[in-house]
């Protein structure tokens, strides 16, 4: 189990901070990525914590720095709280680690596979609210993807994990994943601005509809357009998605409002469909269908009357 080169340590390993002298015990592996490895652990008071270990301490430190800054903000937490940041000297090498609040939940990448597309829309809606708050602090998330998002069990609210890619607005994006990167699709720069994150939000919806990351063709922009048109689930959101993909939305708040509007429009469309379904199976309620036409007839006759009156007055 123990493999220090890959930051793999056996459960039960004790970690002692070089600077703050705090002790933590590793319980089990939670996940590992390019930047480091995350363990579930506990501190002296048996309180569960997430411990992130990294060889390249510079990226860990900048993440810790950002989490620390968010910790001072008021309102809903954007990410996990940071408890400690230290170095662990083990077997002649030094491993950097930071200790964070352990958020219990399911990765969005798992959830998207199981739940209906309607849920994906709701998650993105929640995400946009979080992003609006994040952008106000002068940072963008950068490496936004389902793998870095988590649904927290009570209330199924969405929270961002892994702030290693968070970048100050105006700088160049620190970390990204090709599929969610607008530069990769030839649809914009890698400069950190709110619309960079918003592009990734739109790609999360495309990912949810496709069920996989589609690979770029030689004409990426048309490819995305055609893909949206080919997916029944995405067609009602065509305008919304294309606007987000071409960085037309300048704030998460604006994009959120547009998504709400699009979702509401689709709902009434579906109700219309259910009417059509009801019509196919004759039931006493079918008579109600004609009610839908009455206001239209009334409006039309009103307009014609008004027009006739107008003409008559004009002629006189």
């Amino acid at each position: 189990m123990t493999d220090p080169d890959n930051l793999c340590y056996a459960p039960g390993t004790m970690i002692v901070g070089k600077w703050h002298r705090n002790r933590y015990q590793l319980i089990r592996l939670l996940g590992s990525g390019a930047q480091g490895t995350v363990y579930l652990g506990h501190s002296g008071d048996a309180h569960p914590v997430a411990i992130k270990l990294a060889k390249d301490r510079s990226s860990l430190i900048s993440e810790a720095h950002i989490l620390e800054q968010f910790g001072r903000l008021q309102g809903d937490p954007l990410g996990p709280s940071l408890y400690d940041s230290d170095d662990w000297v083990t077997g002649g090498s030094t491993v950097g680690f930071c200790v964070m609040e352990y958020l219990e939940g399911t990765s969005l990448s798992e959830v998207l596979k199981k739940k209906a597309f309607d849920w994906s829309l709701v998650y993105v809606l929640q995400l946009l609210k979080q992003l609006a708050q994040l952008h106000k602090t002068g940072y963008i998330f950068g490496d936004l993807k389902p793998e870095n998002l988590m649904l927290i069990r009570p209330g199924y609210s969405i929270r961002c994990l892994d702030f290693g890619g968070a970048t100050k607005i105006g700088r160049s994006v620190r970390e990204y994943t090709e599929f969610y990167d607008r530069g990769y699709w030839g649809l914009g720069s890698r400069r950190a601005e709110p619309s960079y994150d918003l592009f990734a939000c739109a790609m999360i919806l495309i990912y949810a509809a496709a069920g996989r990351r589609i690979t770029r063709s030689s004409e990426p922009q048309n490819q995305l357009k055609h893909f949206i048109d080919s997916q029944g689930k995405l067609v009602p959101y065509r305008h919304f998605l294309l606007s987000a993909l071409s960085s037309d939305y300048t704030s998460a708040e604006q994009m959120r409002k547009e998504l709400v509007r699009a979702m509401m429009a689709v709902e009434s469309h579906e109700r219309h469909n259910s009417h059509a379904a009801a019509a196919r199976y004759p039931r006493p309620r079918t008579k109600r269908k004609s009610n839908g036409w009455t206001p239209a007839w009334l409006a039309a006759s009103m307009i014609i009357t008004a027009y006739i009156v107008f003409v008559v007055i004009y002629v006189m």
Partner: peptide, 15 residues
């Protein structure tokens, strides 16, 4: 690397 994490954070910001 020999600085405590708090100070190192500030240095990394400069980097």
């Amino acid at each position: 690397e020999d600085l405590p994490p708090e100070k190192r954070g500030k240095v990394m910001e400069v980097v």
